[in-house]
Design a binder for these strands. Structure first.
Lengths: 212, 212, 212, 212
DNA sequence: TATGAATGAGCTTTCATTCAT
DNA sequence: AATGAATGAAAGCTCATTCAT
């Protein structure tokens, strides 16, 4: 009778994170619905029961992933936006480049990818995301646009709608790539996207009449 | 016991459409996963078996909805974009206003709402949507931007990336509203969104140096 | 490839009862907790899913069993008690003998056996049993005792407590037999129990002083 | 950081009893099935593992509770019954009043409450209860009834069946109260129950013909 | 002694799909 | 063309029990 290997390995502190890593990988790979809790457990090298020791439900896994990943990014983005004085172009450009740099790390990109694919299914998580990210980032961004307008740097506009013009293209770019597989020939090309977008955003698409 | 005759017998050909209507309503109301085929049947006033007579699977229902709704809109948008000559601002503005007018009809809006919520779950449908809509609209739009650039109406840019700047804000606006419940105080405010966006898109956000 | 036998057999009307019969048999045999819904289905010769077509949950099976079996008996007992005039001894004796006759049918006895074993676990069912049986039988019995007392047939007593003296011995007899396996050598001996009990109940256990 | 020393260290020997106390409280509160071993541990202020050090299984907890509580009562009841000479009415009345006094202590009452609710589920425990209590008390009681009959104090009857008439009402009274929530308006009213029952038991319910 | 992280068999319930009628 | 009874695979979750520490 061969020796059975020890069943246990105590790593209480690391475990929840390991489980979350496994879940993230699988959810991105095959989607939330198609992933069984047992798969997550197997991937994390633990038993099904252990997953439920740390997370009360399968849905809590997605919640945990999003919460873990998203808050720091939001914090950073807010800090970045707020810190800059002067022309908002600098602030927005910096934040956007920072975001893009972070997103270029596939490990990091996995989360927006997941959010994009699944969040709409889970009102609970959508709400959490709104609370943790959108409700914090949007006001800061809106206020920054307002200040830029008040200071005469930006043309008059509705800041609440303008922020859709600021962020929307980035969101659509990721959606096209992740959901529909439509991306530039040289990959995600985040850098080029941002440069192209910022140029349009601030200077407009129209050829200047005086330079025409 | 005399048979109570139906007042008038529905033409059989209308049936699939009625099933699709019922499915659309329910999918939007409670989501695809939470909707049972039996619910769809009941709502359409037919039996479960009949649904399967017209559609081979539950997924085929979503497919049918998207296909039915999306192709005409794409056709129309393509025609619109292509037909305009001169400054592309006119073409893009017209298409966007047309889209927005259509989307303001809740009946029509239901479909993008559904797509937004569910399409990511179904690679099959995502692919179909890409094929039927994106692969047809994107090239036309790209080419129009290219022409505008060639003709000197538009500043130099990468048309492939620029179209994200054109469409992205609209997509984000709908997402914020539908998924996260974030919308302007006066409702969806599509008109104001489009005006604000078009102004930025073509003239930029920056105050003109010469007018400063 | 051998012919697969037809999967279906349509007997919609009989099915719920067949399922209940199977459930009753198994619950009595091995207890509620130890019986899987799948076992019930197999015993009834149907699929697991069918059970859930007629009964929303496993617990609903017990509920269904009790409800089906118990209401008619309660009805009959009430009618019996109410109908008799004169000395309540006759009424009570008749009812008790009727009950005992019914209980001697193992098919019928199965239900009290089940109630005795499981009902305490299910507040929901206990409540239903109280509502359907106890709340209907107890007032009738109490009132009968009261009338017997008013008419001078019975010595003064508290009818509410007395009915425990009337019914209790029967209950204990069944409990001893079913739960603890303690029963007279000649089996359940319901008849002898009832005669013995009725004699004590009405005439007392004490030897009459005047006959001593 | 200095260790906060426990005020006094519980003697290890008290532990099993404390665990049993916790288990009893929880089993009565929410039932055996709904109580997790971990709950018991927490309530007892020990770890889950320790419970298993003292009791080999969850079922052993119930067994321990019943065993601990029931033997002394049985012993006492047996002694009481045996000790009395003369009219068995005195013996039975005394025992019954003693029982009732004990049962009025909620701490004590908890055990019959538990037995009533759960014992039927556990053949093992039912058997133990039969062995420890019923097999010891019943013969004594039966023999006492027999002696009372032989001595001419009691009318002729079958002592084996009569003891059901003696004990049954008490059992039913507790069942109605505990399982179905049916009890006299002034609470359990054990005293009144016993007086009412003893009067019927010995003197019968019928009005004496000669006093009528 | 004492802990509590870890296990995993087991069970209820759901629902898309089938097909006899 | 139409029905709806019947199927059964599939998956989330629980919790008594174990054992490395």
């Amino acid at each position: 009778m061969p020796e059975k290997p020890p069943k246990f390995r105590r790593r209480a502190e690391a475990r929840p994170d390991e489980v979350l890593d496994a879940a993230l990988a699988l959810f991105v790979e095959r989607g939330y619905a198609a992933t069984k809790v047992e798969d997550v457990a197997r991937r994390a090298g633990v038993s099904k029961g252990l997953v439920y020791l740390y997370f009360p439900s399968k849905e809590a896994l997605i919640e945990g992933i999003v919460l873990r990943a998203v808050t720091p990014v939001a914090d950073r983005a807010i800090a970045e936006i707020s810190s800059f004085e002067g022309h908002p172009r600098t602030a927005i450009s910096t934040v956007m480049r920072f975001l893009v740099m972070r997103l270029s790390d596939p490990q990091v990109m996995a989360v927006p990818r997941l959010i994009m694919r699944e969040v709409a299914q889970f009102p609970h998580i959508a709400e959490m995301y709104r609370r943790e990210v959108l409700d914090r980032v949007i006001p800061v961004l809106r206020e920054r646009l307002q200040r830029g307008m008040d200071a005469g740097y930006l043309r008059p506009h509705d800041p609440d709608l303008t922020l859709r013009s600021v962020i929307g293209p980035l969101v659509l770019h990721v959606m096209l790539a992740e959901i529909f597989g439509i991306r530039p020939e040289d990959g995600l090309a985040f850098d080029r996207l941002v440069e192209n977008h910022l140029s349009i955003l601030f200077d407009g698409l129209s050829a200047r009449e005086d330079t025409k």
